[in-house]
């Protein structure tokens, strides 16, 4: 089976008078059920790489296949569809829609996909939220929840359409240590118990150390990949 993420020589350059390179020649592949940390100093291109892998941005070089599909050949609509079914996002800030209740926020991706009836979507949203310890908070608006609770709602939303891949951008970055630990545990359980694949950007090396595999970026280039048997990520000189 093809890997979930298969990136070859991926690059992203912002066109400007002096072009800015965000991501430089990154090749990596991530298999199902991996729990991967993406680390690096600020401005190293971690988030940029994550957005490329999450189809929020288009690479200026290289190829990217998600779940065996060459994304370079997909149009905007097909990329949206792939994002909807295959990728769940968790950001540093919860990014919930403020006018909608916790349950409604989780329902939105399901209703957009349209595979479930409204009733079934509602039941699934409640099940997901309940599973993350949010039973009893279904009808609360985001502003009525604590930071940790909001982030858990965001995780539930990312899981709404049961995507195999969850991309997290500093998911614990804005939380206190207790909430942070809670969210980390949830992510780990997703891999261990539900068979998800998680790629999480973090600058917390302690957290990264507890994950299964670490990728390290510096200046947009991949310098470390401690996956057993992974090819040497350092680009050949010249």
């Amino acid at each position: 089976m093809s890997p979930l993420i298969d990136a070859r020589h991926l690059g992203r350059t912002l066109a400007a008078t002096v072009p800015v390179t965000l991501v430089r020649d990154v090749s990596l592949s991530i298999e199902a059920r991996e729990f991967v940390a993406l680390t690096g100093p600020s401005g190293s291109g971690k988030s940029s790489l994550l957005y490329l892998l999450g189809l929020l941005d288009r690479p200026t070089a290289g190829t990217l296949a998600i779940a065996g599909q060459d994304t370079g050949r997909l149009d905007e609509r097909a990329r949206s569809e792939l994002r909807l079914t295959t990728i769940g996002f968790v950001f540093q800030f919860h990014f919930l829609l403020p006018e909608f209740t916790a349950r409604a926020n989780v329902e939105i991706p399901m209703l957009r996909l349209g595979r479930l009836t409204r009733r079934a979507a509602r039941a699934r949203a409640e099940e997901l939220l309940g599973g993350l310890g949010l039973a009893g908070h279904f009808d609360k608006l985001p502003e009525q929840l604590s930071g940790g609770q909001r982030q858990r709602v965001a995780v539930a939303r990312a899981l709404a359409n049961d995507p195999p891949l969850v991309l997290a951008d500093e998911p614990t970055g804005s939380l206190d240590s207790k909430s942070s630990e809670q969210v980390f545990a949830i992510l780990r359980d997703l891999v261990r118990e539900r068979g998800k694949t998680i790629l999480a950007v973090t600058h917390d090396l302690g957290l990264a150390a507890r994950m299964d595999r670490r990728l390290e970026l510096i200046d947009g280039g991949l310098i470390t990949d401690d996956r057993p048997g992974a090819p040497d990520p350092t680009p050949a000189p010249g």
Partner: peptide
Amino acid sequence: IAILKSLGFAETD
């Protein structure tokens, strides 16, 4: 808009 797009909403939506 950014959130909805990241969730998988297309430009037409």
